[in-house]
Design a protein around this nucleic acid. Structure first.
Lengths: 219, 219
DNA sequence: ACCTGAACACCGTTCAAGT
DNA sequence: ACCTGAACACCGTTCAAGT
């Protein structure tokens, strides 16, 4: 019985995408390489191209897989505001857990999953009684905020070493702002202290609520 | 008199960054290469490394240059809402004109230019009479929306061929939505027609105004 | 101090050859 | 039909050598 160094399990688009997600999660965006991926799948780099057209498509598929996984829980119920908040948090958490999704999201905004998200949000906008002419605008604003803010948060998280002490980072940040020139930066100096008890996720929802207040005013 | 193929003008960080911006604008993100850049500057790839640490720093510097250029006009005056709108539009237009800036913005969010933007917005939040405990939250929400939405818009613009017919693109988009399953996508089908007279820039401001309504409610 | 350009280690992608 | 892995064209970055 020879040592098995060869691939026994068949290759498939699903296995490839799954491995890609794993690689992206563990080694970051730069870690996803056709060589690393094929090694992980015990095959050659060329084999992947039989199932996936190129790296862009692979990244799209990985993004889609993660977001779909997140969005397929049972739909939230409650007031329109509550449903929108729930959708927003699902996306926030998905992007927070898989930061590379954020960078990818900009490229294909109106496809598959994003389309469903847009639809769900739009339905809640309608439930709020927003007049027809302003429904599209309101839904767009919510989408832009959610995706933009979630991505920004992920980018922030990616900047500091993984598993770093959050409190320490915030304290450093706060100290930096407190050290700013009081003439040029009165506002930042004034709010610097609030950095210390800052919670990204809470802040994200609070911002969303501001938009929802504005939307409610349209009804 | 021999043909001058060599560099006569001295290299400098400014000239390099300027050339990088030019290359990014004309050939896109993939067009910025140390080889292409050094050819453009009539020198070797290694020469650039004397003035710039690496490609990341070069992209940061290019982003900074473009945003600073945009933000250094005379400060807008008027109501807090008007000033915030003016700042937002300056950023929107800068990112619209240099789409690569959008992709870059996520990486270094609290440095130099971004810090100034945050400060200016915060000052307007204070003028609106928002209580201290909520000033930071309100300013963050505005920042997140502006940067996120502007970036998303740039990504959209980057997707279709440069100089393409806007009306045709919107019509195609609208037609696609009108072709959706009316059972699964009632909202998108309902608003599909609005795509045809859709204006990104107007929509961007309208969304911002929703947040401003919410913020005004805090005062 | 500043520039040169060959060289290194890597990458995405292709493709003749195998099964 | 599907997989293999060497090869191609490219990239960021380094560095001994020049001025």
């Amino acid at each position: 019985m020879a040592t098995r160094t060869r691939n026994t399990e068949r290759l498939s688009r699903e296995r490839i995408v799954e491995a890609a997600v794993e690689l992206l999660d563990t080694t970051g965006e730069d870690g996803l390489t056709f060589r690393a991926l094929s090694a992980h799948l015990r095959t050659g780099p060329g084999a992947i191209y039989w199932h996936v057209a190129n790296k862009g498509e692979l990244l799209d598929a990985a993004t889609d897989a993660v977001l779909t996984r997140g969005m397929t829980g049972e739909a939230a119920t409650g007031t329109p505001q509550e449903v929108i908040r729930a959708i927003a948090l699902v996306l926030f958490d998905a992007i927070d857990e898989h930061p590379w999704v954020g960078a990818q999201l900009s490229d294909g905004p109106w496809r598959s999953v994003t389309l469903q998200i847009c639809e769900r949000i739009g339905q809640q906008i309608q439930r709020l009684g927003v007049p027809g002419a302003e429904q599209f605008m309101a839904a767009s604003a919510v989408m832009l905020y959610i995706l933009g803010a979630a991505r920004q948060n992920a980018a922030n998280a990616r900047m500091n070493p993984p598993g770093a002490d959050r409190a320490a980072i915030l304290a450093t940040q706060a100290a930096a702002w407190e050290g700013l020139d009081p003439e040029g930066f009165p506002f930042l100096r004034h709010v610097a202290g609030q950095m210390r008890e800052h919670d990204d996720r809470e802040q994200f929802v609070a911002g969303l609520d501001l938009i929802l207040v504005g939307i409610t005013g349209l009804a």
